[in-house]
Computed example of a mutant assay.
Amino acid sequence: MTFVKITEQASLHDNLEQKSVRELLEEINEEDRKVPEAVGKAIPQIEKLVTAIVERMQKGGRIFYLGAGTSGRLGVLDASEIPPTFGMPPTLVVGLIAGGDTALRNPVEHAEDDPQRGWQELLERNISPLDTVIGIAASGTTPYVIGALHRAREHGILTACICSNPDSPLAAEADIPIEMIVGPELVTGSSRMKSGTGQKLICNMITTATMIKLGRVKGNRMVNMQLTNDKLVDRGTRMVADELGLGYEQAKRLLLLHGSARKAIDAYRESQS
């Protein structure tokens, strides 16, 4: 079977430079509305992945995202948001991007073309069979990502991928391939658009569902969030006040004493028992 890159197919829209701003925005929005449907079709595979990740993380496993360019940046973004949102150590969800941190802001020439580097970076972080490696690549052909998944799979490590082309070389290296087929981009080949949006949605789904199943959310609240600014201290205070039926100032003192809404609530209840 010939591998066809839908992500490189011609846009359904043409003569873009001749259109008004309103026309351009409406056509971008028209394309963007296709993304949630494509993500929805991938939910069975996402469910399979989250279930497997939760089981591994309960035993001490970690999540590693690998990607290049936009895909790599989105993995790093999702990983970086886990500690402040859920109060987890930054070592449990790790984002790796071809070319390193420099590539977060600037393109690093040929970084994504090295099929060995991704695995080397995983080895530097003591990758183990309890971990999960998720490769993100809209094209499904990025050597940096494919090489890492291939070696991880050889070592009995769970592999998954998020890509926007069916039956890609990357999916062939994934135990759980997540294929989110959003179709051609408005600007031909610009996978920072629909593909990037879908990748962000899927990363959100993977880590949010995982953190909920690991007990990092109570009801619908981020009871383990880090108190890194006044807004979050206020949010945490209201959580404690609502949960315990306390006044705002007493709840705030408890929160700041214990460092998180969950710890404050648990400590107060223990003191009252």
Rank of each mutant, 00 (worst) to 15 (best):
K59I: 08
K59L: 13
K59H: 08
K59W: 11
G60E: 10
G60T: 10
G60F: 10
G61T: 07
G61A: 04
G61M: 07
R62Q: 02
R62Y: 06
R62C: 02
I63R: 07
I63A: 06
I63P: 04
I63V: 14
F64L: 01
F64C: 00
Y65S: 02
Y65A: 01
L66F: 13
G67M: 00
G67P: 00
G67C: 03
A68R: 04
A68H: 11
G69P: 09
G69F: 12
G69Y: 11
G69M: 13
T70R: 00
T70L: 00
T70N: 03
T70G: 03
T70P: 02
T70E: 01
S71Q: 06
S71E: 11
G72K: 05
R73Y: 06
R73D: 06
R73P: 00
R73I: 02
L74Q: 03
L74H: 01
G75V: 01
G75M: 00
G75H: 07
G75N: 01
G75R: 04
L77E: 09
L77W: 09
D78Q: 09
D78A: 08
D78L: 03
A79L: 01
A79T: 02
A79W: 02
E81Q: 15
I82M: 14
P83S: 08
P83K: 01
P84R: 02
P84V: 03
P84K: 01
P84F: 02
T85H: 14
F86K: 02
G87F: 15
P89Q: 08
P89L: 04
P89C: 09
P90K: 15
P90Y: 10
P90L: 11
L92Q: 15
V93A: 12
V93G: 05
V93I: 10
V93F: 15
V93N: 04
V94D: 10
V94C: 09
G95W: 06
G95A: 02
G95K: 03
I97L: 09
I97S: 05
A98E: 03
A98S: 10
A98C: 10
G99K: 01
G99L: 00
G99M: 00
G100L: 04
G100T: 09
G100P: 05
G100Q: 10
D101G: 12
D101I: 13
D101N: 15
T102N: 11
T102G: 04
T102W: 07
T102C: 09
L104T: 13
L104R: 11
R105K: 14
R105A: 14
R105F: 15
R105D: 15
N106T: 10
N106A: 13
N106D: 15
P107H: 08
V108A: 03
V108T: 13
V108K: 07
V108R: 06
V108N: 02
E109N: 14
E109P: 10
E109I: 13
H110S: 13
H110P: 05
H110W: 15
H110E: 10
A111W: 05
A111G: 06
A111L: 08
A111D: 05
E112F: 11
E112W: 13
E112M: 09
E112S: 12
E112H: 12
D113S: 07
D113M: 04
D113H: 05
D113Y: 05
D114Q: 14
D114N: 13
P115T: 12
P115E: 15
P115H: 08
Q116L: 13
Q116F: 15
Q116T: 12
Q116E: 12
Q116C: 07
Q116S: 14
Q116M: 09
